[in-house]
Design a protein around this nucleic acid. Structure first.
Lengths: 139, 139
DNA sequence: GTGTTTGCAAACGTTTTGCACAGGT
DNA sequence: ACCTGTGCAAAACGTTTGCAAACAC
């Protein structure tokens, strides 16, 4: 309800769980799912729960510490690299690769090759606040 | 496994269920979820099942009759309009609006306004076949 | 007749949640 | 002391699937 622009900073306790989850995520160049991260964290902290991993990933995302890769149709993956880049996903094995350079123009106009991938297509989706919700928020 | 380029046409039986599902989807300019479509179809065919709706939406999508809007993080929505266009999704209410013109350049470079929406961001994701899977497929 | 499609219900995998307790500040 | 964060387990959610019967061709 009270989602303001600068995303009011919430008070956070600095728990070892959150610290380890972030460390593990930042330590890899893969883009693990919550379950994969859960396995990684469990090696250092055996009694951690999957719910905690989910809750902390959400918190870290809210605070802009990590990126959430909600690739359509498949499980969410997470990225400790918050720098500006895009992703290619393999339709075959699901592997996700970082893309830092979209090539000349930087348009979505379908490149045929990207980071060695044979590109089949792309998805460009915008999100924002619709006219109705803007009106409602103004009150 | 055998996903060839021209997508070999499968033999389809022309069932009333499939016909009605397609009709209902094409009749609206909204982008209904499978469950919403299920409700719509049920008014004309009370005994239809949700599984049938899902199966037929998949079939219609395979055959290129409809578009699947796998907006990240939320349930899949469907679009009877197969023409080339993009979508904006409202972060507030979830409403999805068609966008036929991305504006000058047609780049993802964040427009601040689109179809009356105040744009907060965009997501551009590519999909294709990774080098490893290409090698594997070549054999 | 044959093989696809259906309705039904149960299963699936991911994510979220309720709860009582532990622990950071 | 307060109140956020935790582990645990169960629930919720959207979607898929197994099956026997029904139906299109």
């Amino acid at each position: 309800m009270s989602e303001s622009q600068p995303a009011e900073i919430k008070l956070r306790r600095n728990t070892p769980q959150r610290k380890i989850i972030l460390e593990e995520l930042c330590a890899v160049k893969t883009h693990p799912t919550a379950a994969e991260l859960y396995d990684m964290v469990r090696q250092r902290m055996p009694r951690v729960s999957l719910g905690t991993v989910y809750r902390n990933l959400e918190v870290l995302h809210e605070d802009g510490m990590i990126r959430k890769l909600e690739f359509s149709g498949v499980e969410t993956r997470f990225d400790g690299d918050t720098s500006d880049h895009y992703h290619v996903r393999c339709s075959g094995c699901g592997h996700i690769q970082d893309v830092y350079d979209l090539g000349p123009g930087g348009t979505p106009a379908q490149p045929t090759e990207l980071a060695g991938f044979r590109i089949e297509g792309h998805r460009l989706e915008y999100f924002g606040i619709c006219p109705d919700c803007q009106t409602q928020a103004a009150q």
